[in-house]
Every structure is written in C-alpha cells, then in structure tokens.
Design a protein around this nucleic acid. Structure first.
Length: 478
RNA sequence: GUCCCCAUCGUCUAGCCUGGCCCAGGACACUGCCCUUUCACGGCAGCGACGGGGGUUCAAAUCCCCCUGGGGACGCCA
C-alpha cells in the first residue's frame, strides 16, 4: 500500500510568537501540496504544558492567514482526521505507547530528573555523548508493577536496537544512516501523561495520512528514531524531506536574539505578506530564468522539490526591504490607502494613543511629529544622549542586553508585568530610576518628552520594543 | 567531544544530476555615471565567487576521495 494522496502538514508549537521559520516551512509545504493537488494541514503541537501559551495558537493561525496561506484541515476548520490539537489526542498517544510496552518494544522508566542530570553531567565530564544509560530498560516486570502501584512517576521509553543501522531516504539528500548504538532510548510518554514530540508526531502523521514530512533540517538527527517508531508500529513511512534552516547573519540558526523572527514584527513593520512570501520563496529555491519576483501561484506552477538548494540561507533584511519596495510600487491606489489607513494608522492604535498624547499637543498638526516613534521602525540614536552622566556606553549596553534577556522571559506584556520586570532589573543593578528610565525612554521613543513609558511600551508591543533595544545595542557597541 | 547535514560573489542564487556552450549568469548591497530643482524610483557601468589538496577524464564549478570550514542534533522542548 502507498499513500494515494499527497498530504502535508506543518506542526507549530504554541509557545510564543509566530515564527518566520514556521512561515518558511509552511510556504514550501503549501506550494508542494498545491502543486500535487494535495492537502495542506495544520496541526498544533501543544504537548509541553510548561511552555504552552494560550494566545499563541491564535497568533500563529492569524499570522498564517495574514500571509494568505490557507489550510484544508486544522484546529479551527476541523477535518476528517481531527482533532488537530495534540493536547486533545492524549488518549490516542498514551494508548499507542502502551501498545509498545505490551509488546516489549518500550518500557517504563522511573529515573528522576535529578538522576538523569547527574548521568549527563558525568558523561559530559568524560567527554562522552550524553544519553540515557538505560538504567530501567531491563527492570523486572514485577518491580515496575510494584513501583507503579506505589504511584512513583514514570515515563515510557522506546527500546532502541542495540546494534545494526537505521537508514532513511531524504527526498533531497539521499540516504542518511546512523548506527543504532548511537540512538538514545527516547522518551515517548512523559510522566504527566503527555506524549513527546517523537511519539505524537509519528502517531498523528500516520493517523492523518501524511504522505510527505517536510520540516526543518534540525530534525534530521531524530528522524531515525521516528523511522524506528514507524517500524515498531508496522506503519508505512512517509517521504522525509528536510528543508534548510534559515540563518542569522553569523550563520547560526535563525533566532530572535539575533534577528526579528516574529511574523507580527514584519506585519507591524509594514512588510507586505506577498513580499515576505516571495522572499521566503527565494530562500533555497529559485524560480529560474533570472526571475525573482513571483507570487505563490507562480511559485506553485514551477515548484519542484528537487530544485531546493541545501545551503542554509541567511535571512537578509536588506533584500527583503528591496523586494517589499518592489511590491509597494505596484500597489493600487486603493490598496495603498487602505494599508496606510487601516494598518499604519489603525483606529485602535490611535484610540489607545489618545489619552497619553492629547495633553502634550496644542494643535492637531503636532500629532505626527510628536508621536512619530509609534509609527516608525528604527530610530536615530546619534542625536540623543542615550548614556546617562556618570555611566559609560559599555555600561548602558550591558544594562540593555540584560534588560532584553529579562523581557524575553516575560510572557505577559502589560503595564503590571512590565513595571515589575523593569523595577526588578533596575534594583538588581542599582541604577538611579532617573538614569535607568531615561535611557530606556530615549531608546524606545527617541525623545525625552514622550508619553508615559509603560503605556508607550504596551502600545508599541513586544516586537518593536525588542527591536529598538537591540538596535540601540548595536549603536552603543559600534 | 560524538554523530549527522552542508559548501559558487559580502548576501540570495543560476549552473552541478545528464562533465565541454562557464576565463561562471542574475539579484541585493556597495561604487560611479545618466535621468532629475532635492531625495527616491528608473537606466547604464563597475566591484565581486567555483574553500584547499589529490584523483578520474582529451576536458571538472560539475564525478570520486581526503582535508578544511560552516551548521544542526545529542532534554520528561518542539
């Protein structure tokens, strides 16, 4: 038997802002599905309750819609293979894990996190590869039963073969193989009853009849584990295809620390969805005939998996801007007007702004100038005294980089949380409030006479604030 | 460290599979010129790459090997 229909999926994890890498993988999956008359599916992989963020799923779906990518099945539209949210499929995953235990292909492991940490630490010190030492692999059934009865927490691990080689064919790279003895006894089911990525992914891909697994390159090394799982269940494997990883300018995997990665940032920065999609289509793929400007339909008509170039492309803001300019020039009057009016000067933003700005202006014609920082992207820092008296640029830079770290940890973006976060940081480094907040104010708003700081931060949004802080950091360190 | 993946201008890439048409084409960026009351757009020109070494071959960016370099993975995260 083989798959009678092309079905692909993207499986974002709702742990934060919608990521540009998700859009990248989504585009290629989408185009591949359309090219082959298949289905494009979205499945939410929310199996990590510690990192789960309630609003994240909505933001992801919203951003993908903004881009204009539509899906045939997903958590919001449903479909024949639902539910499309993994947290709602826990019983299915647990049952599959148990099936493997019953067949002797998986086992219960009672090792504590502390023990595992210790094992890893020791391995690292000896210069060995870290991995589970299989302490519980051969636990007598009776003992396992006894400890279970005593309600000791446990996980279920897959019994990897101790010898031999596991191989799979990557649609772009050919055969990839790895010696089984290098494979860790992967956790399938966590002690909280949720599945790990590996289990949930394989089970759901199979149940959802996914024919091609197109995902980022970072998954290559765990693919053999997935292959072994397919084999343990006796299921037909999909075609695996690992896409290159988007990179920062320093060639590392793209990350929010070094590059804006949130789709919401690009939307707010006024990048047009078509331009972003077009740019993403240029990453590792080319249209041919020296044509660089194309839409998704055109990309679909020419798309071939084999045409994907495997070198990791650097996400270059400058070229994105150029492309966006090309699209801007082609916009119709109506579209241009509605974008400026509804997006740049959205009524919600103006309303949110009003209470803080009215008292600072005498005439309407001052509005744009006094509040330009709400609408601008990068600010000019050479004309403002960012560094307080008595401090050095290096000290300010250190302060800002710590602040960015702290803000990245802060999930809630409201007055209360921001204030607590800033106060804690300021106290920790013992800066005078005046120096501390004036520097932040200048960095974020570019001027001394701005509306109240926290209100401004809230309205500006996390993405723009992070962008400005990092931008200032670059300025301070140059 | 171990394993895996990758390797053409600074960046995105074409060419590589099916060696010769490639003293390597396009785009971004950069520089200069033109257009222009400014800036931008646009046009033109310039700068700029097959990582190194071995093979195979009449012939290698293209095939093979080694080295180097880069990246990823080594979690009860995905």
């Amino acid at each position: 038997m083989s798959f009678d229909r092309v079905r692909v999926r993207i499986a974002p994890s709702p742990t934060g802002d919608p990521h540009v890498g998700t859009a990248y993988v989504a585009l290629f999956n989408y185009v591949f599905a359309k090219k082959n008359g298949g289905d494009f599916i979205i499945r939410i992989e929310d199996t990590d309750q510690s990192r789960y963020r309630g609003s994240s799923e909505d933001m992801i779906l919203r951003s993908l819609k903004w881009l204009g990518l539509s899906w045939d099945e997903g958590p919001d539209v449903g479909g024949p293979c639902g539910p499309y949210r993994q947290s709602e499929r826990r019983e299915i995953h647990a049952a599959h894990a148990m099936q493997l235990v019953d067949r002797g292909l998986a086992y219960r492991c009672f090792c504590t996190a502390a023990r595992l940490d210790g094992v890893r630490k020791e391995q690292r010190e000896k210069g060995q590869t870290t991995g589970y030492d299989r302490h519980c692999r051969d636990l007598p059934v009776a003992e396992a039963e006894r400890r279970m009865a005593a309600s000791e927490p446990f996980v279920i691990r897959l019994k990897m073969p101790l010898s031999g080689v596991t191989k799979f064919d990557d649609a772009l790279r050919g055969t990839v193989e790895i010696e089984n003895q290098r494979l860790d006894d992967q956790v399938l089911l966590k002690s909280d009853g949720y599945p790990t990525y590996h289990l949930a992914n394989v089970v759901d891909d199979h149940l959802m009849k996914i024919s091609h697994v197109m995902r980022a390159e970072e998954w290559i090394s765990s693919t053999p584990k997935h292959v072994l799982l397919y084999e343990a269940f006796g299921w037909e494997k999909p075609v695996f295809c690992h896409l290159p990883l988007l990179r920062n300018t320093d060639h590392s995997k793209i990350s929010k620390r070094k590059n804006p990665t949130s789709l919401r940032y690009y939307e707010r920065a006024g990048i047009l969805p078509d331009a972003l999609l077009n740019y993403l289509g240029l990453m590792g793929w080319s249209f041919g005939d020296n044509i660089e400007i194309f839409n998704v339909e055109e990309m679909t008509s020419r798309f071939e998996l084999k045409g994907i170039h495997l070198g990791g492309p650097i996400f270059d803001q400058t070229k994105l801007n150029w492309l966006n300019n090309q699209y801007l020039q082609k916009l119709s009057d109506d579209r241009f007007v509605s974008l400026i009016r509804d997006q740049m000067f959205a009524p919600e933003i103006l309303k949110a702004l009003r209470p803080f700005v009215v008292e600072r202006m005498d005439r309407l014609d001052q509005f744009v100038d006094k509040n330009s920082f709400f609408f601008n992207g990068a600010l000019q820092y050479d004309a403002v005294p960012l560094v307080p008296n008595g401090k050095t640029a290096a000290e300010l830079a250190t302060m800002v980089s710590e602040l960015v770290e702290r803000l990245d940890e802060e999930y809630e973006w409201d007055m209360e949380h921001l204030k607590a976060c800033f106060d804690a940081h300021r106290e920790a480094i013992a800066w005078k409030p005046k120096d501390y907040f004036m520097s932040v104010r200048l960095i974020v708003t570019g001027r001394k006479d701005s509306p109240p700081l926290f209100e401004s931060l809230v309205i500006l949004g996390r993405e723009m604030v992070r962008f400005r802080l990092r931008d200032a950091l670059k300025f301070l360190r140059q």
